[in-house]
Design a protein around this nucleic acid. Sequence first.
RNA 1: UCCCCGGUAGCUCAAUCGGCAGAGCGGGUGGCUGUUAACCACUAGGUUGGCGGUUCGAGUCCGUCCCGGGGAGCCA
Length: 478
Amino acid sequence: MITDIKRERIVDILRNKEIGRKVSIYGWVKTRRDSKGGFSFLEINDGSCLRSLQVIADKSLSNYESEVLRLNVGSSVMVKGTIVASPGKKQDIELQAEEISVIGWADPAEYPLQKKRHSFEFLRTIPHLRVRTNTFGAVARVRNAISYAIHKFFQENGFIYVHTPIITGNDCEGAGEVFKVTTFDLSEIPKKEDGEIDFSEDFFGQKAYLTVSGQLEAEAYALALGDVYTFGPAFRADNSNTPRHLAEFWMVEPEMAFSGLERAIRVAEELIKYLFLFALENCREDIEFFNKFIEPANLKQIQKGIEQDFARITYTEAIEMLSKAKRQFQYPVEWGCDLKTEHERYICEEVFDKPTIITDYPKGIKPFYMKLNPEGETVMAMDILVPRVGEIVGGSQREDDYDTLLMRMKEQGVDPQDYWWYLELRKFGSAPHAGFGLGFDRFIQFITGISNIRDVIPFPRTPNSLGFLNRRVYGSDI
RNA sequence: UCCCCGGUAGCUCAAUCGGCAGAGCGGGUGGCUGUUAACCACUAGGUUGGCGGUUCGAGUCCGUCCCGGGGAGCCA
């Protein structure tokens, strides 16, 4: 049954409006409304777009009484029929069914999704089903489109996609806590004579971690291939409980050889504008849905992001603005301190109200690999902030001088022996290079307007939550 | 990890001073209608997050633990 009938996508049917054509669709029932005139309206969604296709099922169908009248939200069906003009007000075409096959029932007494809207908190308890809602379907399509656009942008600009490792031996890059990777039997960990854990017995013969960033490895490839980028998952074991943090998230990290901070900034701004435009041109319906039901500011902010240059100031200028601001901050502002959330929000949302680039931070609050400015107090770093979400990009020109890098490692308590290969990149054919990381999920947060990052990724991982742990179990069959 | 708020029917939420645990949606049954978050009637549905305490009496007060949310820190 599945293989001998062409499955047409509802998005194409709705776009082409070929009245009179016979089509077959497969999808899930969103709602059923019966008419005692002897027919029912079914709305079928197949995930290809936000909108559903209205199906007219009448009593001439052999299984009308036995099956169609029992169809409920969530059931999967095949509908074969003819596209006709709709007399209804909310759609111009509909599908007059000639055959309906129920593929999978969804018992309405147990199926947790209703036609009505649910809270995001509840939907988080059913990540395997929430994607069937309008909002999560739209998020999934936007994530897909933006992923594609990221590759498209870099490929069109001569960047080479590099698969940096997920498992790494790098500890402590100044980017948060790491997850440890081991095959040890945790109840029986091998110890050395002095009581220390004997990692030579472990799978890799040494300590291993999940990567917090592909940057260091990307640098190695940039210093051979020119412009490269990675796009993959990163893992942070920080106990962060906020709407902007995940333990597993996706990050885009370009790295460019023979380039400085200015190019990194330019590429980042061009990339973001490109993605904004791509979203508007390719996900218009979904973005408008978010604008209507989730965040009434997101569409305007995307458009503003495309039309206007990003605001740009140095850290030092930011500190001046903050100290002159006519308002009280909870954290004091003085040169050398890190910018707190309240400071970033003030500058990005109240002063500029658009994407804002802040550059040249004090060296003390940034990691060892960022290149020192000639005056020796600041580093060639940049962050890009956006309204509502905050920091979505962090980048820098990398320290390409061997001796300076070694000195910076020692200053920050990083053991150079752990980074011998990274140092070697500065020993053999070193070159100025720069790069940045774009938080993919935060970017999706910005364009969708969804306020909690747990709702822009399919299966969110956060402290104390791997999903599915606190679920009721229906019936007693498992 | 810290601060604040919350946890009541499948879902979204009420319940006055500590005094009979309710509504809407969803489900079931019936009715009505080219409907469109359809509509109308009836109906079933509860260990009020767990444990302990105060009290004649606890959804409500106290203690504790679990879970969720918001804010903060850390960061992308």
